[in-house]
């Protein structure tokens, strides 16, 4: 089975063909080693840094008008789990004060991955 991606490592945008039929993924169409690595990752275990917002429960002294706290996963998660993540995020609320980097949700979908605050509130 062959998958095709546009490489996003640099603006050149090589069209990568990744063949997964053998024991090892075979990448063609790349122009550099980074592109090859990207192709293998996209074909075998694509991951994404999910970011979203959670409701602020109460009023932030720092930002009284702000309704939402931006959050992100501190390590990329598998692309296929993005919507599972969003379902959890929708249920969350945080009460201020919260500091940027504070853990909002521990072991988010995967042990060792945390959802963290992106801003002081």
């Amino acid at each position: 089975m062959e998958q095709i991606f546009t490489c996003t490592v640099c603006p050149f945008g090589c069209e990568l063909h990744v063949d997964l039929s053998g024991d090892e993924p075979v990448v063609t169409g790349h122009a550099c080693a980074r592109g090859k690595k990207y192709g293998v990752a996209e074909a075998t275990n694509p991951v994404r840094t999910v970011t979203s917002t959670v409701l602020i429960d109460g009023i932030s002294e720092l930002h009284p008008n702000l309704k939402l706290l931006p959050v992100k996963v501190d390590k990329p998660i598998p692309k296929a789990m993005m919507f599972d993540g969003m379902r959890i995020i929708k249920t969350l609320k945080v009460a201020p004060p919260v500091k940027a980097g504070d853990i909002v949700y521990k072991d988010f979908l995967i042990p060792g991955v945390n959802l963290v605050a992106g801003r002081n509130i």
Binding site: T49, T51, T53, P70, G118
Partner: peptide, 18 residues
């Protein structure tokens, strides 16, 4: 709030607020 800021200056993928 998406990530991708600061790759050149900080060599990390920060969100806008970060």
């Amino acid at each position: 709030i998406h990530a991708g800021f600061g790759l050149h200056i900080f060599s990390e993928e920060l969100t806008g607020p970060e």
